[in-house]
Structure formats: C-alpha cells, structure tokens
Computed example of a mutant assay.
Amino acid sequence: MARIRTAAEAEINAAEQMQKLGYGDATALLGGADGGIDVYSSRAYAQVKWRGGSAGKSDLTNLYDTRGTSHARKLLYFSGPGYTDEAVDYADAVGIALFRCEPDGETPPVGAHAPKLVAAARNSTVAVAPPPPPPPEPESPARIVARNAWAMVAGFFGAHWRLLGAVVCTIVLMIAPFGEGNVGLRVFATILAVVGAPVFWLLYVQHRHANDR
C-alpha cells in the first residue's frame, strides 16, 4: 500500500494486513457507525488508532467490551502512536493482538499475542501443498498395440541379431556376385558379405555355446 496519510487509509491497511493473517473477509468500516469496530471479520474485530497519544488500557478495554459474548472472535488493535506499558500488559492478559501501524503500511507485532498470529499465518502458507498434477490421459488402444509390438520386435532383434546378420550376409554373398545392375554396388555388397558372414556366424556360434553351458 502507498504511504498512509489518513485514518481511513490506516483502516484499509489494517484490513489488508488482517487478510494476510488469514481473515479473508476482513473489511474496513471507514469510520461509520461501527460500534467501536474499525475492521470487521466474521472471526475477528479490530480497532485502528492512527493519530493522538499512545493507545492506553482504556482504548483496549473499549475493544474488549465491544466484543461482548463473542469470545470466539479474535481481537486486534492497530496503533500508529504505539502503546503504553499498561496497555501492553492488559492486552497480554486478555488476549488482544497488538500491532504498530507504520506510515509505510508495515504493521510490526507488539506484545505476546500478535507474533503468534503472524507465525501461524506464515506456517499455514508454507504448509499449503501444491495442487496435485492432473491424471495422465489414458493411452488409446492403437498406441498400446503399437508399443507392445515394438517391444516384441526390439526384443526379437536384441536376442537374435547375430543370427539375422549371418543369414543376411550369407544371402547377399549368394546373390550379389551374380546379379545385374551397378557393378560397383554389387562388388561393395559382396565384400561386405564376405567379411560379415563369417563374423556374424562366429558370433552366433559362440553365443549358442555360451548359452548351452
């Protein structure tokens, strides 16, 4: 919030600070017929003293009496000039949370109860877990079939690549020298087959012997 200059701005700032403390419906009443309450929430009442002398015990007593029998509501007091020692002792005794109301909008806690509100609000913010990620979309039947087929093909080639290489090289060795077409390509294929066929057959035989042991 911008720098506070008036009592109304102080009340609005107090309402904003209460919202940060967890009182989401805190609303500044802006000096109307508020019955001694400057900021209203369904779970808390607050008074704001922007100018004048330090807030005394009588100021806090007025807020305490305004609550009446609604003891479930928390009481907060915001004071620009600060508090007398007697007021702080009284607030600690009856459970009123005291805050300074600084011109820059800051509201440092005073006394025993305000720091507890600040800590509780900070802990609740930290404890909020991020929303869970959306569930993954189910795979389509076609995608499942394709994935399973690819796994089978990959598994087959992974287990039998030696035999497949030996068979392919042997077939090329039988066909390439006697085929038609580009002579250079046939020579190249024949050389590869001459080298590859015995290598793959040797690897295949060694693999079979290793598995038979």
Rank of each mutant, 00 (worst) to 15 (best):
W50C: 05
A15Y: 06
D85Q: 15
Y45I: 00
G111I: 09
Y83H: 03
E11D: 05
G165H: 02
V48K: 02
G184F: 08
W161Q: 14
E180H: 06
P115F: 03
R73S: 05
A10I: 07
A129T: 10
D38V: 03
I96K: 00
V88I: 15
T66H: 06
H160L: 03
A197V: 03
Y204R: 06
V195S: 06
V172H: 11
M174Q: 14
V187C: 08
K57G: 02
L192V: 12
G32I: 03
S140L: 14
C169L: 05
T27W: 04
F99N: 01
R100W: 04
A142H: 03
G32F: 10
V199P: 01
S70V: 04
Y23I: 02
G22R: 03
A121Y: 05
Y77C: 05
A97H: 06
T6R: 05
F156W: 13
D38T: 05
N182Q: 04
A33G: 11
A93F: 02
R5S: 13
P132H: 08
V126Q: 14
G36S: 02
A91N: 08
G56N: 02
N62G: 13
V110R: 11
A210F: 11
P131K: 11
V153T: 12
D65E: 11
R122D: 13
V128I: 10
V145C: 04
Y204N: 12
V145M: 09
T61W: 07
L30Q: 12
D104P: 13
N123H: 11
E9Q: 09
P136V: 00
V199D: 10
H160D: 00
P81T: 07
A189G: 06
G31P: 15
Q47R: 11
R186F: 03
P136Q: 01
G165C: 11
A151R: 15
L29C: 04
L75V: 03
Q17A: 09
F99W: 01
V128T: 14
D104N: 10
A7D: 13
G52W: 01
L192W: 14
A91Q: 06
H209P: 01
V126L: 13
A14D: 07
E106P: 06
I191T: 14
V126M: 08
E106R: 15
H71W: 14
P109A: 09
C169N: 15
P136G: 04
F157K: 12
R5K: 14
V48D: 00
P132V: 13
A72I: 02
V183M: 15
L30M: 09
N123V: 07
G105K: 05
V145P: 01
Q47N: 05
V88A: 13
A72D: 15
G184R: 03
D104E: 10
